[in-house]
Design a protein around this nucleic acid. Sequence first.
DNA 1: GACCCACTGTAACAATTGTTACCTGTTCAT
DNA 2: ATGAACAGGTAACAATTGTTACAGTGGGTC
Lengths: 217, 217
Amino acid sequence: MSENQETLVNKIKDYYEFLLEDGLIEEIAKTGAYQQLKAGQHMMEIGDSVVHMPLLLTGAIKILREDSDGDELLLYFLEKGDTCAMTMTCCYGESKSKIRAIVEKDSEIIFIPILKMEEWLAKYKSWRSFVFESYNMRLSEMLETIDTLAFLKMDERLYKYLTDKAVVTQSTFLSNTHQEIAYDLHTSRVVVSRLLKQLEISGKIKLFRNKIEVLQF
Amino acid sequence: MSENQETLVNKIKDYYEFLLEDGLIEEIAKTGAYQQLKAGQHMMEIGDSVVHMPLLLTGAIKILREDSDGDELLLYFLEKGDTCAMTMTCCYGESKSKIRAIVEKDSEIIFIPILKMEEWLAKYKSWRSFVFESYNMRLSEMLETIDTLAFLKMDERLYKYLTDKAVVTQSTFLSNTHQEIAYDLHTSRVVVSRLLKQLEISGKIKLFRNKIEVLQF
DNA sequence: GACCCACTGTAACAATTGTTACCTGTTCAT
DNA sequence: ATGAACAGGTAACAATTGTTACAGTGGGTC
């Protein structure tokens, strides 16, 4: 095993140490394609064919939905140790992505070919558990998204967005324009500016150009 | 095998014929608890422990979400051949239900103990596919719910609700009060009455007392 | 019949959210 | 330095949705 391979194996073990079976993590390191992605890169577009399953080692990815008019909506963020169940959905089903994935923060990802992923399902119990666990987390995230949409008002959604983002990027300073936030929340820039100003007045955030500081959680 | 058992096996085969392995459907019939539920019955409450996985043979179930204030929201309907992935989520995870399930139309259901369900995952490939397929369908339904909440206005949501319900109950006559609809859509009765009247004027539905006829699809 | 009660229609108003328009200041390329 | 493009603040207004209040209608019970 090369030195690089060994480094990779150790990196995977850091976040996926529950994959217990002998050789599984080594197989992931060998079969998977390791990639570093920069913030802002589009990892996947709606309609793309999905032939790999991503395992996120470090960084953060945001997952977006789009309607037929091109209107966007943020679904949730992926963090280290996450995989994308929506991707799996696509693999098993129509194989076309229903979502867009954008790198939110510089990330390290391993891409697993779908065939391997299915092979391991039968072969490794801990892999099966992991995949199920991932589905469950994704369903929970989707439920939370639905709760947010159905039960929260725009100002609450906005504040939740800011704090969520602060958590996944591990920074209280968010590099965001109001327009970008408006796209993620599917509202207009004017509304976002208005509500951000209110949040600043109530002392929860501080506004700068191209930047927002989250003060309270 | 008793005559009843055989009838049940045939019934399951009608909707789950893709469960190919020898003996799997027989095992389902033997292990599962067959129940008939009447419209209006509560199949599951939020916070209930989940120890069974339901397989829907006939009828329809509606799945609701509730926030901390007791406000409700319809997530989706289950139809024949469906199972409830949210249930599976709970099984694998916290084992507490995050949703409420109400029988929308008289239904026949088989309840599978969780342990068996997991045992079969390792044992039967077609069962594994079925469970994955179910997860995927549920994720798709959730996506559709999110689309509806994020991108549609109330009048569109209302009309979608009526047509969806007409489809799953296989009837163009819906026995519904305006208040019930308001709960499902998480809005107020007055708003529902207002928009229903508009839909009637535009010729898409006809209003009666305790009843709505859906004219166009 | 007289009564009650759930269901529906509607008006009037409030709150929230969305839209348009315009202004200021910053950044950046030329 | 100048102009163009971008970011953000704000006002004025429109549209949608939510709230309160009340009236009428039909079904059931006594």
